[in-house]
């Protein structure tokens, strides 16, 4: 787990959390989540246990790159911007960027019982709770992904915010 994180940090030009104690706790949390859910979801977020609903919070989460760019660290602070360490700025817990409708979608569904509970679903339309998979392409290198939201950083050419949608929609109802 740690090697994977180190390799990923190097690829994207980040460092892992400089506090060894904190880093150890994060890695342990990721391992525990991998054992529990079958995937290493963010140790600082509550996963639903349903892969389709937790995909965006599997480490490295979808929100890592914009969080590192804006706050100098990702949500759990596993990945840290190098200049933060150099400048000796203490890493703080960053605000949650995960959209509320994704949280709502994940938490309203019980593992093993895929019926929605009554908790405040009324504030969201069914449309916002469906998973709409779309094709996106990187305008810089042409890399194509099929997912709900495009990555912030292209995994191939590392261009930021360069994805455009290819107009095709697939909807997964009732997950």
């Amino acid at each position: 787990m740690r090697k994977r994180a180190e390799s990923d940090a190097e690829t994207y030009g980040y460092i892992l959390n400089p506090s060894q104690k904190f880093l150890k706790a994060l890695i342990e949390g990721l391992k525990r989540n991998e054992e529990r859910y079958g995937y290493p979801s963010c140790p600082c977020r509550l996963a639903s246990g349903i892969f389709e609903h937790d995909k965006d919070i599997i480490c490295p989460c979808e929100y890592r790159d914009p969080d590192v760019e804006e706050f100098g660290a990702c949500y759990c602070a596993l990945y840290v911007r190098e200049d933060r360490e150099k400048d000796g700025i203490q890493v703080q817990q960053v605000p949650e960027r995960r959209p509320l409708n994704k949280q709502q979608r994940a938490y309203n569904i019980t593992v093993g019982d895929k019926t929605k509970t009554s908790t405040s679903t009324s504030t969201f339309s069914q449309e916002s709770l469906d998973i709409k998979l779309r094709l996106h392409y990187c305008k810089q290198c042409g890399y194509v992904v099929f997912r709900e939201d495009p990555p912030y950083t292209c995994p191939i050419c590392k261009a930021k915010k360069m994805f455009a949608e290819i107009k095709t929609v697939t909807t997964l109802h009732g997950l």
Partner: peptide, 9 residues
């Protein structure tokens, strides 16, 4: 808290 979260610890 979450048992896996270092911020919670």
């Amino acid at each position: 808290a979450l048992s896996t979260c270092p911020w919670c610890r």
